[in-house]
Amino acid sequence: MGAARIIEQYLCYCKEMCSDFEPLGESSLFTILETCKASTRKSLQGINYFAAEGGEAFDGIKNMIEEKATLSSNSDRLIENLKRARFYLKSDYKVHVTRSSNIADHCCIYALSDHKKSDFAQNCEHEHDESCTECSNLTSTLNEIERLIEETETDKELLDRALKKFRSYRESIEAWKAHLLRSINRDLCREKLLDTLSNDEIYLNLDWAMKFLPVKSREPQSEFFGKRGISWHITVVIKNDANV
Rank of each mutant, 00 (worst) to 15 (best):
G2A: 04
A4W: 04
I7H: 03
I7E: 09
Y13K: 08
F21P: 03
E22W: 00
E22F: 00
P23T: 02
L24G: 02
G25K: 11
E26D: 13
E26N: 09
E26Q: 04
S27V: 11
T31A: 14
T31I: 02
I32F: 10
L33I: 01
T35Y: 11
T40S: 14
F50Q: 10
E53T: 11
D59N: 14
G60E: 12
G60D: 09
I61K: 06
K62D: 13
N63P: 00
M64H: 06
E66N: 09
E67M: 08
T70D: 12
S72G: 05
S72V: 03
I79V: 14
I79E: 05
Y88T: 01
L89D: 04
K90H: 13
K94Q: 12
V95L: 15
T98H: 01
T98C: 03
S101A: 08
A104P: 09
H106F: 13
H106P: 01
C108D: 00
C108A: 10
A111W: 10
S113C: 02
S113P: 01
D114V: 08
S118A: 11
F120D: 08
F120V: 06
C124D: 02
C124I: 01
E125W: 02
E125C: 05
E127R: 06
H128N: 07
D129N: 15
E130W: 05
S131E: 14
T133K: 05
E134W: 00
S136H: 14
S136M: 10
S140T: 10
T141H: 00
I145L: 03
E146A: 01
T152Q: 04
T152A: 07
D155V: 00
L158H: 12
L159N: 09
K164A: 14
K165R: 15
S168H: 10
R170Q: 15
R170V: 00
S172R: 12
E174M: 07
E174K: 13
K177T: 03
K177N: 01
R182I: 05
S183E: 15
N185L: 08
R186M: 13
L188T: 02
E191S: 09
K192Q: 14
D195C: 10
L197C: 04
N199A: 12
N199Q: 10
D200E: 07
E201I: 00
I202S: 13
M210S: 09
K211L: 00
K211C: 08
F212H: 07
K216A: 07
S217M: 03
P220G: 01
P220I: 07
S222Y: 02
F224I: 15
F224P: 01
F225Y: 11
K227C: 02
R228H: 10
H233F: 14
I234Q: 13
V236N: 14
I238H: 03
D241H: 09
